[in-house]
């Protein structure tokens, strides 16, 4: 049987794969993170990179914007960051004798929010709300955010002084939360030898158009089939987190929806028109782990480990 007809219906898959390939060639040793970023992009979700500074979070975001041909905005969060610094504000135009709205960094396709936990809760919630709504209301006027829209937020888990850690309810708004991790030894050596590649970013050219990206998003939503068996499997994972003795609060329904979307995107990248349990398994940890609230006496438990142990206990539907 020829497999081609099936993959053909997954529109723009080759272009999306080309994005991943280009980025992987450019940012060595970050394949997994790149892939997760693309999955977040395809489902219209946002991604939180949780790692120490200097591992290439910003470079990743910049490279992504270049390759995707998207506009790029950046917010460096500090404790005195105001909501208007994010959304933009109206300034009196003396020539026209009226207030004109100067859009903030939020009005870009790809927004890098650096060290999000340094911002005040007020600014954080302003950002996260607009992320969720895809709309910004400033001084009575409502402005739509551009599409596609992807927030890549970063936070430093080590430094705790003067930070405002994101509350769990805000964390739930991120589709994926992942670390980057140090690159493998050989790759890191070559990176050190080669020096910073920030300047070379200019050489990157877009490999996909905005239209194609929107088309791919639509294909993920509409062309990838999620069967009852896999839904059942997904639901059992969500259910298991809720009844686990070490968990105070398990995965929400939004988490379930997000996991299904991410699994669809994964299947799309794999060239499959249907989701298999492995798609769910592969994304359960990046999508789910950060949303779990462990019980008070279980502080030492790594949420990723916990979720993996839950996955291990749930049989995969095979027939």
């Amino acid at each position: 049987m020829n497999l081609e007809p099936r993959t053909q219906s997954l529109a723009q898959r080759d272009a999306v794969l080309a994005v991943i390939e280009t980025l992987s060639g450019f940012l060595k040793g970050k394949g997994r993170t790149i892939r997760l970023c693309v999955i977040a992009l395809l489902t219209g979700g946002n991604i939180l990179l949780e790692d120490i500074p200097g591992l290439g979070k910003t470079t990743l975001a910049l490279a992504l914007s270049r390759v995707l041909g998207l506009s790029f905005g950046r917010i460096q969060c500090t404790s005195d960051l105001l909501p208007s610094d994010i959304t933009g504000l109206s300034i009196f135009n003396r020539e026209e004798n009226r207030f004109t709205f100067i859009p903030g960094p939020l009005f870009h396709n790809l927004l890098l929010v650096d060290e999000i936990n340094r911002a005040m809760p007020k600014s954080q919630s302003a950002l996260l709300e607009s992320m969720e709504e895809r709309k910004v209301t400033v001084e009575g006027a409502t402005y739509d955010l551009p599409s596609p829209f992807l927030v890549v937020a970063t936070q430093n888990p080590v430094e705790q002084v003067g930070t405002h850690p994101l509350p769990e309810s805000q964390l739930d708004r991120f589709l994926i939360c992942t670390g980057i991790g140090y690159p493998p030894e050989e790759i890191e050596k070559s990176i050190i030898r080669g020096g910073s590649i920030r300047d070379e970013l200019k050489n990157l050219t877009p490999v996909i158009s905005v239209e194609a990206l929107l088309e791919a998003q639509q294909a993920v939503r509409e062309r990838v089939f999620l069967s009852e068996k896999v839904t059942e499997y997904l639901f059992r994972i969500v259910g298991a987190t809720r009844s686990h003795p070490q968990v105070l609060s398990g995965l929400s329904t939004r988490a379930g929806i997000n996991l299904a979307e991410a699994a669809r995107a994964n299947a799309y990248l794999e060239g499959r028109e249907y989701v298999i349990p492995e798609d769910v398994k592969a994304l359960a940890v990046p999508v789910g782990a950060h949303r779990i609230i462990t019980a008070a006496d279980q502080d030492g438990v790594r949420k990723e480990q916990l979720l993996r142990s839950i996955l291990k206990a749930i049989p995969v539907p095979l027939a």
């Binding site: 069967s227 896999v230 028109e273 989701v275 298999i276 349990p277 492995e278 095979l318």
Partner: peptide, 27 residues
């Protein structure tokens, strides 16, 4: 899952089985 089971196996028959079987069951 089946894909996990056959990870690293390149035999076309094995791949075909998983492809065909999964294509039915997970649809």
């Amino acid at each position: 899952g089946l894909q996990e089971l056959i990870a690293g196996i390149v035999a076309p028959d094995v791949l075909r089985f998983v492809e065909l079987y999964g294509g039915c069951i997970y649809r």
